[in-house]
Design a protein around this nucleic acid. Structure first.
Lengths: 201, 201
DNA sequence: TGGCTATATATCACACTGATATATATCCCT
DNA sequence: AGGGATATATATCAGTGTGATATATAGCCA
Protein backbone atom coordinates (compact mmCIF):
# COMPACT_ATOMS: atom_id res chain seq x y z
CA UNK A 1 0.00 0.00 0.00
CA UNK A 2 1.15 3.55 -0.71
CA UNK A 3 2.87 4.88 2.41
CA UNK A 4 1.23 7.86 4.03
CA UNK A 5 3.75 10.67 4.22
CA UNK A 6 1.25 13.46 4.93
CA UNK A 7 0.96 12.09 8.43
CA UNK A 8 4.65 12.69 9.12
CA UNK A 9 4.74 16.09 7.51
CA UNK A 10 2.00 17.13 9.91
CA UNK A 11 3.54 15.44 12.94
CA UNK A 12 6.86 17.08 12.11
CA UNK A 13 5.34 20.53 12.05
CA UNK A 14 3.42 19.88 15.27
CA UNK A 15 6.62 18.69 16.94
CA UNK A 16 7.74 22.29 16.67
CA UNK A 17 4.78 23.57 18.67
CA UNK A 18 0.98 23.46 18.73
CA UNK A 19 -0.82 24.57 15.60
CA UNK A 20 -4.29 24.64 14.07
CA UNK A 21 -5.11 23.12 10.69
CA UNK A 22 -5.09 26.60 9.29
CA UNK A 23 -1.60 27.28 10.67
CA UNK A 24 -0.31 24.05 9.17
CA UNK A 25 -1.88 24.94 5.86
CA UNK A 26 -0.09 28.27 5.79
CA UNK A 27 3.21 26.80 6.85
CA UNK A 28 2.98 24.09 4.23
CA UNK A 29 2.42 26.70 1.55
CA UNK A 30 5.01 29.19 2.76
CA UNK A 31 7.89 27.18 4.18
CA UNK A 32 7.89 23.75 2.59
CA UNK A 33 7.08 24.19 -1.10
CA UNK A 34 10.64 24.19 -2.40
CA UNK A 35 10.94 20.52 -1.52
CA UNK A 36 7.55 19.31 -0.33
CA UNK A 37 4.01 19.59 -1.62
CA UNK A 38 1.17 18.95 0.76
CA UNK A 39 -2.32 19.24 -0.56
CA UNK A 40 -4.44 21.39 1.68
CA UNK A 41 -7.52 19.23 1.36
CA UNK A 42 -5.68 16.46 3.12
CA UNK A 43 -4.72 18.32 6.26
CA UNK A 44 -8.00 18.46 8.15
CA UNK A 45 -8.98 14.83 7.60
CA UNK A 46 -5.47 13.77 8.60
CA UNK A 47 -5.62 15.81 11.82
CA UNK A 48 -8.88 14.06 12.70
CA UNK A 49 -7.29 10.72 12.08
CA UNK A 50 -4.16 11.53 14.07
CA UNK A 51 -6.42 12.65 16.89
CA UNK A 52 -8.38 9.42 16.70
CA UNK A 53 -5.12 7.47 16.96
CA UNK A 54 -3.93 9.49 19.94
CA UNK A 55 -0.90 10.93 18.16
CA UNK A 56 -2.14 14.47 18.72
CA UNK A 57 -4.41 16.07 21.29
CA UNK A 58 -6.90 18.81 20.51
CA UNK A 59 -7.79 22.00 22.31
CA UNK A 60 -10.70 24.00 20.98
CA UNK A 61 -10.81 27.79 21.27
CA UNK A 62 -14.40 28.73 20.54
CA UNK A 63 -14.29 31.58 18.01
CA UNK A 64 -16.80 34.38 18.17
CA UNK A 65 -18.51 34.55 14.83
CA UNK A 66 -15.64 32.69 13.21
CA UNK A 67 -15.50 28.88 13.26
CA UNK A 68 -13.92 27.41 16.37
CA UNK A 69 -10.15 27.12 16.21
CA UNK A 70 -8.87 23.63 16.95
CA UNK A 71 -5.30 23.70 18.18
CA UNK A 72 -3.42 20.41 18.03
CA UNK A 73 -0.55 19.33 20.26
CA UNK A 74 1.66 16.38 19.49
CA UNK A 75 1.55 13.62 22.14
CA UNK A 76 4.35 11.37 23.35
CA UNK A 77 3.00 8.64 21.06
CA UNK A 78 3.03 11.09 18.18
CA UNK A 79 6.62 12.08 18.88
CA UNK A 80 7.62 8.43 19.09
CA UNK A 81 6.00 7.74 15.73
CA UNK A 82 7.71 10.77 14.19
CA UNK A 83 11.11 9.64 15.44
CA UNK A 84 10.51 6.14 14.18
CA UNK A 85 9.76 7.50 10.72
CA UNK A 86 12.80 9.77 10.83
CA UNK A 87 15.00 6.75 11.53
CA UNK A 88 13.37 4.54 8.87
CA UNK A 89 15.01 4.34 5.43
CA UNK A 90 14.03 7.03 2.96
CA UNK A 91 11.62 5.92 0.25
CA UNK A 92 12.78 6.94 -3.21
CA UNK A 93 10.65 9.56 -4.93
CA UNK A 94 9.15 8.35 -8.21
CA UNK A 95 9.70 11.16 -10.73
CA UNK A 96 7.01 12.69 -12.90
CA UNK A 97 8.62 15.40 -14.98
CA UNK A 98 6.04 16.49 -17.50
CA UNK A 99 8.53 18.53 -19.48
CA UNK A 100 10.64 15.42 -20.11
CA UNK A 101 7.58 13.42 -21.08
CA UNK A 102 6.74 16.02 -23.70
CA UNK A 103 10.33 16.07 -24.89
CA UNK A 104 10.33 12.29 -25.08
CA UNK A 105 7.30 12.43 -27.38
CA UNK A 106 8.75 15.46 -29.16
CA UNK A 107 8.84 13.78 -32.58
CA UNK A 108 5.07 14.34 -32.73
CA UNK A 109 5.40 18.10 -32.64
CA UNK A 110 7.92 20.65 -33.95
CA UNK A 111 11.18 21.81 -32.38
CA UNK A 112 9.96 25.40 -31.80
CA UNK A 113 7.23 24.06 -29.52
CA UNK A 114 9.81 22.23 -27.42
CA UNK A 115 12.10 25.24 -27.44
CA UNK A 116 9.29 27.36 -26.06
CA UNK A 117 8.59 24.84 -23.27
CA UNK A 118 12.21 24.68 -22.24
CA UNK A 119 12.70 28.43 -22.42
CA UNK A 120 9.74 28.93 -20.08
CA UNK A 121 10.98 26.21 -17.78
CA UNK A 122 14.38 27.89 -17.68
CA UNK A 123 12.82 31.18 -16.63
CA UNK A 124 10.90 29.46 -13.85
CA UNK A 125 14.03 27.73 -12.60
CA UNK A 126 16.01 30.96 -12.70
CA UNK A 127 13.35 32.62 -10.59
CA UNK A 128 13.28 29.71 -8.16
CA UNK A 129 17.05 29.82 -7.88
CA UNK A 130 17.03 33.54 -7.13
CA UNK A 131 14.34 33.07 -4.48
CA UNK A 132 16.26 30.26 -2.77
CA UNK A 133 19.50 32.22 -2.82
CA UNK A 134 17.75 35.22 -1.34
CA UNK A 135 16.32 33.14 1.51
CA UNK A 136 19.63 31.38 2.12
CA UNK A 137 21.42 34.72 2.41
CA UNK A 138 18.80 36.19 4.76
CA UNK A 139 19.44 37.08 8.39
CA UNK A 140 17.14 34.36 9.80
CA UNK A 141 19.36 31.70 8.34
CA UNK A 142 22.46 32.82 10.18
CA UNK A 143 23.43 30.57 13.06
CA UNK A 144 24.97 27.16 13.62
CA UNK A 145 22.15 25.46 15.51
CA UNK A 146 20.82 22.20 14.12
CA UNK A 147 17.47 23.57 12.96
CA UNK A 148 18.95 26.35 10.84
CA UNK A 149 21.69 24.11 9.56
CA UNK A 150 19.10 21.63 8.30
CA UNK A 151 16.98 24.33 6.73
CA UNK A 152 20.07 25.69 4.97
CA UNK A 153 20.78 22.22 3.62
CA UNK A 154 17.30 21.89 2.15
CA UNK A 155 17.76 25.26 0.49
CA UNK A 156 21.16 24.21 -0.79
CA UNK A 157 19.62 21.11 -2.31
CA UNK A 158 17.16 23.28 -4.21
CA UNK A 159 19.97 25.56 -5.35
CA UNK A 160 22.05 22.68 -6.67
CA UNK A 161 19.03 21.24 -8.45
CA UNK A 162 18.02 24.58 -9.96
CA UNK A 163 21.52 25.27 -11.27
CA UNK A 164 21.69 21.83 -12.81
CA UNK A 165 18.28 22.33 -14.42
CA UNK A 166 19.36 25.65 -15.90
CA UNK A 167 22.57 24.16 -17.27
CA UNK A 168 20.54 21.37 -18.85
CA UNK A 169 18.12 23.89 -20.37
CA UNK A 170 21.02 25.67 -22.04
CA UNK A 171 22.31 22.43 -23.47
CA UNK A 172 18.85 21.38 -24.62
CA UNK A 173 18.11 24.75 -26.21
CA UNK A 174 21.33 24.58 -28.18
CA UNK A 175 20.54 21.10 -29.45
CA UNK A 176 16.96 22.03 -30.33
CA UNK A 177 18.00 25.19 -32.17
CA UNK A 178 20.34 23.01 -34.19
CA UNK A 179 17.47 20.65 -35.04
CA UNK A 180 15.19 23.53 -35.95
CA UNK A 181 17.80 25.11 -38.21
CA UNK A 182 18.37 21.81 -39.97
CA UNK A 183 14.66 21.37 -40.56
CA UNK A 184 14.38 24.84 -42.03
CA UNK A 185 17.33 24.70 -44.41
CA UNK A 186 16.07 21.33 -45.46
CA UNK A 187 12.59 22.22 -46.62
CA UNK A 188 12.67 20.46 -49.98
CA UNK A 189 13.21 17.08 -48.35
CA UNK A 190 10.62 14.72 -46.98
CA UNK A 191 11.40 15.67 -43.39
CA UNK A 192 9.62 19.02 -43.45
CA UNK A 193 6.49 17.86 -45.19
CA UNK A 194 6.26 14.95 -42.80
CA UNK A 195 6.34 17.31 -39.86
CA UNK A 196 4.17 20.05 -41.30
CA UNK A 197 1.69 17.82 -42.99
CA UNK A 198 -0.12 14.74 -41.86
CA UNK A 199 -3.24 15.60 -43.89
CA UNK A 200 -5.74 16.52 -41.22
CA UNK A 201 -9.24 16.23 -42.54
CA UNK B 1 -9.26 19.40 -11.05
CA UNK B 2 -6.00 17.49 -11.21
CA UNK B 3 -5.01 17.13 -14.86
CA UNK B 4 -4.79 13.60 -16.17
CA UNK B 5 -1.29 12.97 -17.48
CA UNK B 6 -1.55 9.20 -17.66
CA UNK B 7 -3.75 9.62 -20.68
CA UNK B 8 -1.01 11.40 -22.60
CA UNK B 9 1.73 9.06 -21.52
CA UNK B 10 -0.32 6.22 -23.01
CA UNK B 11 -1.27 8.13 -26.16
CA UNK B 12 2.36 9.08 -26.65
CA UNK B 13 3.49 5.48 -26.51
CA UNK B 14 0.69 4.35 -28.82
CA UNK B 15 1.65 7.09 -31.29
CA UNK B 16 4.80 5.06 -31.83
CA UNK B 17 2.90 1.97 -32.89
CA UNK B 18 0.11 -0.36 -31.70
CA UNK B 19 0.56 -1.96 -28.31
CA UNK B 20 -1.34 -4.01 -25.74
CA UNK B 21 -1.79 -2.95 -22.14
CA UNK B 22 0.89 -5.43 -21.23
CA UNK B 23 3.31 -3.92 -23.74
CA UNK B 24 2.68 -0.44 -22.37
CA UNK B 25 3.21 -1.68 -18.87
CA UNK B 26 6.59 -3.11 -19.77
CA UNK B 27 7.64 -0.03 -21.68
CA UNK B 28 6.61 2.23 -18.82
CA UNK B 29 8.73 0.21 -16.43
CA UNK B 30 11.74 -0.20 -18.70
CA UNK B 31 12.05 2.96 -20.75
CA UNK B 32 10.39 5.78 -18.86
CA UNK B 33 11.31 5.41 -15.21
CA UNK B 34 14.24 7.80 -15.15
CA UNK B 35 11.84 10.70 -15.62
CA UNK B 36 8.30 9.34 -15.47
CA UNK B 37 6.42 7.08 -13.13
CA UNK B 38 3.22 5.49 -14.35
CA UNK B 39 1.37 3.22 -12.00
CA UNK B 40 0.54 -0.03 -13.68
CA UNK B 41 -2.90 -0.30 -12.12
CA UNK B 42 -3.94 2.74 -14.05
CA UNK B 43 -3.10 1.54 -17.54
CA UNK B 44 -5.94 -0.88 -18.26
CA UNK B 45 -8.75 1.35 -16.99
CA UNK B 46 -7.25 4.25 -18.95
CA UNK B 47 -7.12 2.19 -22.16
CA UNK B 48 -10.80 1.36 -21.72
CA UNK B 49 -11.60 5.01 -21.28
CA UNK B 50 -9.53 6.13 -24.25
CA UNK B 51 -11.32 3.48 -26.31
CA UNK B 52 -14.69 4.75 -25.11
CA UNK B 53 -13.73 8.26 -26.19
CA UNK B 54 -12.56 7.09 -29.60
CA UNK B 55 -8.95 8.13 -29.09
CA UNK B 56 -7.76 4.56 -29.62
CA UNK B 57 -9.19 1.59 -31.48
CA UNK B 58 -8.95 -1.98 -30.25
CA UNK B 59 -8.14 -5.22 -32.00
CA UNK B 60 -8.49 -8.44 -30.06
CA UNK B 61 -6.28 -11.44 -30.71
CA UNK B 62 -7.98 -14.35 -28.96
CA UNK B 63 -5.33 -16.14 -26.94
CA UNK B 64 -5.40 -19.90 -26.60
CA UNK B 65 -5.40 -20.70 -22.94
CA UNK B 66 -4.02 -17.25 -22.14
CA UNK B 67 -6.32 -14.24 -21.79
CA UNK B 68 -7.13 -12.49 -25.07
CA UNK B 69 -4.60 -9.89 -26.12
CA UNK B 70 -6.12 -6.49 -26.83
CA UNK B 71 -3.97 -4.44 -29.16
CA UNK B 72 -4.68 -0.72 -29.23
CA UNK B 73 -4.06 1.65 -32.14
CA UNK B 74 -4.13 5.41 -31.79
CA UNK B 75 -6.80 7.12 -33.92
CA UNK B 76 -6.65 10.47 -35.71
CA UNK B 77 -8.58 11.98 -32.78
CA UNK B 78 -6.09 10.50 -30.38
CA UNK B 79 -3.15 11.90 -32.33
CA UNK B 80 -4.83 15.31 -32.43
CA UNK B 81 -5.31 15.24 -28.66
CA UNK B 82 -1.70 14.19 -28.13
CA UNK B 83 -0.43 17.04 -30.29
CA UNK B 84 -2.66 19.50 -28.49
CA UNK B 85 -1.22 18.41 -25.17
CA UNK B 86 2.34 18.59 -26.52
CA UNK B 87 1.74 22.20 -27.53
CA UNK B 88 0.07 23.19 -24.24
CA UNK B 89 2.19 24.81 -21.53
CA UNK B 90 4.02 22.43 -19.22
CA UNK B 91 2.52 22.10 -15.76
CA UNK B 92 5.11 22.49 -13.00
CA UNK B 93 5.84 19.34 -11.01
CA UNK B 94 5.13 19.74 -7.29
CA UNK B 95 8.10 18.24 -5.46
CA UNK B 96 7.91 15.62 -2.73
CA UNK B 97 11.42 14.81 -1.64
CA UNK B 98 11.13 12.65 1.43
CA UNK B 99 14.82 12.90 2.21
CA UNK B 100 14.56 16.68 2.49
CA UNK B 101 11.45 16.40 4.65
CA UNK B 102 13.37 14.19 7.06
CA UNK B 103 16.30 16.56 6.99
CA UNK B 104 13.98 19.49 7.63
CA UNK B 105 12.70 17.74 10.76
CA UNK B 106 16.21 16.54 11.57
CA UNK B 107 16.32 18.31 14.95
CA UNK B 108 14.07 15.52 16.28
CA UNK B 109 16.65 12.84 15.61
CA UNK B 110 20.45 12.66 15.70
CA UNK B 111 22.98 13.63 13.02
CA UNK B 112 24.20 10.03 12.45
CA UNK B 113 20.68 9.05 11.36
CA UNK B 114 20.66 11.84 8.79
CA UNK B 115 24.17 10.98 7.66
CA UNK B 116 23.08 7.41 7.04
CA UNK B 117 20.09 8.57 4.97
CA UNK B 118 22.19 10.85 2.83
CA UNK B 119 24.97 8.31 2.39
CA UNK B 120 22.43 5.79 1.10
CA UNK B 121 20.83 8.36 -1.12
CA UNK B 122 24.24 9.20 -2.54
CA UNK B 123 24.88 5.57 -3.42
CA UNK B 124 21.52 5.35 -5.17
CA UNK B 125 22.21 8.49 -7.17
CA UNK B 126 25.69 7.28 -8.13
CA UNK B 127 24.16 4.09 -9.42
CA UNK B 128 21.47 5.96 -11.31
CA UNK B 129 24.11 8.23 -12.84
CA UNK B 130 26.18 5.27 -13.99
CA UNK B 131 23.12 3.61 -15.52
CA UNK B 132 22.14 6.77 -17.40
CA UNK B 133 25.67 7.32 -18.67
CA UNK B 134 25.85 3.74 -19.86
CA UNK B 135 22.60 4.08 -21.80
CA UNK B 136 23.60 7.44 -23.23
CA UNK B 137 26.89 5.99 -24.51
CA UNK B 138 25.23 2.91 -26.01
CA UNK B 139 25.04 2.18 -29.73
CA UNK B 140 21.24 2.65 -29.96
CA UNK B 141 21.58 6.26 -28.99
CA UNK B 142 23.87 7.14 -31.87
CA UNK B 143 22.18 9.13 -34.63
CA UNK B 144 20.93 12.63 -35.25
CA UNK B 145 17.25 11.92 -35.87
CA UNK B 146 14.72 13.75 -33.74
CA UNK B 147 13.63 10.73 -31.72
CA UNK B 148 17.10 9.78 -30.57
CA UNK B 149 18.03 13.40 -29.99
CA UNK B 150 15.07 13.81 -27.66
CA UNK B 151 15.79 10.60 -25.82
CA UNK B 152 19.40 11.72 -25.35
CA UNK B 153 18.15 14.99 -23.90
CA UNK B 154 15.96 13.23 -21.33
CA UNK B 155 18.98 11.14 -20.34
CA UNK B 156 21.11 14.25 -20.13
CA UNK B 157 18.58 15.84 -17.82
CA UNK B 158 18.84 12.86 -15.50
CA UNK B 159 22.62 13.01 -15.64
CA UNK B 160 22.71 16.70 -14.74
CA UNK B 161 20.27 16.12 -11.90
CA UNK B 162 22.17 13.10 -10.55
CA UNK B 163 25.48 14.94 -10.58
CA UNK B 164 23.94 17.88 -8.76
CA UNK B 165 22.39 15.55 -6.19
CA UNK B 166 25.73 13.85 -5.57
CA UNK B 167 27.49 17.20 -5.16
CA UNK B 168 24.82 18.23 -2.68
CA UNK B 169 25.22 14.98 -0.76
CA UNK B 170 28.93 15.63 -0.38
CA UNK B 171 28.26 19.10 0.93
CA UNK B 172 25.55 17.86 3.29
CA UNK B 173 27.68 15.02 4.60
CA UNK B 174 30.49 17.41 5.40
CA UNK B 175 28.14 19.73 7.28
CA UNK B 176 26.52 16.86 9.16
CA UNK B 177 29.82 15.33 10.16
CA UNK B 178 30.75 18.71 11.53
CA UNK B 179 27.55 18.83 13.57
CA UNK B 180 28.05 15.27 14.84
CA UNK B 181 31.65 15.99 15.90
CA UNK B 182 30.56 19.11 17.73
CA UNK B 183 27.84 17.21 19.57
CA UNK B 184 30.30 14.54 20.66
CA UNK B 185 33.06 16.80 21.92
CA UNK B 186 30.41 18.90 23.59
CA UNK B 187 28.50 16.39 25.64
CA UNK B 188 28.44 18.33 28.89
CA UNK B 189 26.84 21.43 27.36
CA UNK B 190 23.19 22.24 26.81
CA UNK B 191 23.41 21.45 23.11
CA UNK B 192 23.26 17.69 23.57
CA UNK B 193 20.35 17.68 25.96
CA UNK B 194 18.49 20.06 23.69
CA UNK B 195 18.87 17.67 20.82
CA UNK B 196 18.10 14.55 22.82
CA UNK B 197 14.64 15.82 23.61
CA UNK B 198 14.39 18.33 26.42
CA UNK B 199 13.51 21.97 25.99
CA UNK B 200 10.43 22.82 24.04
CA UNK B 201 9.94 26.51 23.55
C1' DT C 1 6.90 -31.80 -8.07
C1' DG C 2 7.77 -27.37 -7.05
C1' DG C 3 9.24 -22.87 -7.98
C1' DC C 4 10.25 -19.16 -11.02
C1' DT C 5 9.41 -16.25 -14.87
C1' DA C 6 6.65 -14.54 -18.67
C1' DT C 7 2.20 -13.49 -20.83
C1' DA C 8 -2.09 -11.03 -20.14
C1' DT C 9 -6.05 -8.54 -18.01
C1' DA C 10 -8.48 -6.72 -14.07
C1' DT C 11 -9.58 -4.66 -9.54
C1' DC C 12 -9.03 -2.77 -4.90
C1' DA C 13 -8.03 0.17 -0.87
C1' DC C 14 -5.85 3.88 -0.08
C1' DA C 15 -3.02 8.29 -0.87
C1' DC C 16 -2.94 12.64 -2.93
C1' DT C 17 -4.77 16.86 -5.34
C1' DG C 18 -6.80 21.29 -6.02
C1' DA C 19 -11.15 23.34 -6.26
C1' DT C 20 -15.01 24.73 -3.94
C1' DA C 21 -18.37 25.57 -0.05
C1' DT C 22 -19.42 27.99 4.22
C1' DA C 23 -19.05 31.79 7.42
C1' DT C 24 -17.29 36.13 9.40
C1' DA C 25 -14.17 40.04 10.06
C1' DT C 26 -11.06 43.46 8.59
C1' DC C 27 -8.80 46.57 5.55
C1' DC C 28 -8.65 49.58 1.61
C1' DC C 29 -10.53 52.23 -2.01
C1' DT C 30 -14.03 55.15 -4.04
C1' DA D 1 -22.09 53.68 2.49
C1' DG D 2 -20.86 50.28 -0.75
C1' DG D 3 -17.82 47.11 -2.99
C1' DG D 4 -13.92 44.19 -3.27
C1' DA D 5 -10.01 41.86 -1.76
C1' DT D 6 -7.80 39.47 1.80
C1' DA D 7 -7.45 36.88 6.12
C1' DT D 8 -9.33 33.59 9.51
C1' DA D 9 -11.05 28.91 9.92
C1' DT D 10 -13.00 24.26 8.89
C1' DA D 11 -14.86 20.86 5.76
C1' DT D 12 -15.84 18.03 1.60
C1' DC D 13 -15.72 16.31 -3.13
C1' DA D 14 -14.62 14.32 -7.64
C1' DG D 15 -11.01 12.93 -9.68
C1' DT D 16 -6.03 11.26 -10.31
C1' DG D 17 -2.36 8.28 -8.99
C1' DT D 18 -0.27 4.08 -6.53
C1' DG D 19 1.36 -0.50 -5.65
C1' DA D 20 -0.34 -4.80 -4.31
C1' DT D 21 -2.97 -8.52 -5.41
C1' DA D 22 -6.15 -11.77 -8.02
C1' DT D 23 -6.79 -14.76 -11.98
C1' DA D 24 -5.10 -18.05 -15.40
C1' DT D 25 -1.83 -20.54 -18.42
C1' DA D 26 2.61 -22.01 -20.26
C1' DG D 27 7.53 -22.76 -20.41
C1' DC D 28 11.75 -23.84 -18.11
C1' DC D 29 14.87 -25.84 -14.92
C1' DA D 30 16.38 -28.47 -11.02
Amino acid sequence: MTPNRTEFAILGLLADGPRSGYDIRKEVQETLPHFWNESVGHIYPMLHRLHGRGLVSRMTEPGEGKPARHVYHITEDGLAELREWLAAPVEPTPPRLEILLKLFFGAHTEPPVLIEHIARYRVARERALAALERIAAGPELRGTDARRTYLRLTLSSGIHAARAAIAWCDEALQVLHGLAARNESDDSSAATSRIRGGGTS
